[in-house]
């Protein structure tokens, strides 16, 4: 059984609590917290004193539990980045569509008011 550094366990726990607090205070919407929560919960789970990390390390071909953890962290970060990439892309498209409609509506309004 591999004993994980307590600091990592604490960091993962702090991240989980921070995300939940941010949701409660409406600083973060639930749908955008999923990626963070999933990553933090995974690290928390792996940091518990079980054989999970060692088993995962063997499956991933890592030569030590620490290396397996690095794999998991890199995977989690890539997943979170990709998730936010899709969110930002959608928001950008929505913002563009809004700006286009706003500009057209403003021009129509000015025409109706006789300003043009």
């Amino acid at each position: 059984m591999y004993s994980f550094p307590l600091a990592i366990t604490l960091l993962a726990a702090i991240l989980v609590v921070s995300v939940i607090v941010a949701i409660r205070r409406k600083h973060l919407r639930v749908e955008y917290s999923v990626a963070w929560l999933a990553g933090a919960m995974l690290v928390l789970l792996l940091s518990l004193p079980t054989r999970l990390l060692a088993t995962l390390g063997r499956l991933l071909g890592a030569n030590s539990p620490e290396t397996a953890l690095v794999y998991v962290l890199i995977g989690s970060i890539l997943f979170v980045c990709f998730h936010y990439g899709t969110v930002i892309s959608r928001l950008r498209d929505d913002a563009t569509a809004l700006a286009q409609r706003l500009a057209i509506a403003e021009l129509e309004l000015r025409r109706l008011r006789g300003e043009r």
Partner: peptide, 13 residues
Amino acid sequence: EVLSFAYHLGLGG
């Protein structure tokens, strides 16, 4: 007539 955009959309937008 002028279509004036709220921010810099880029040419395609």
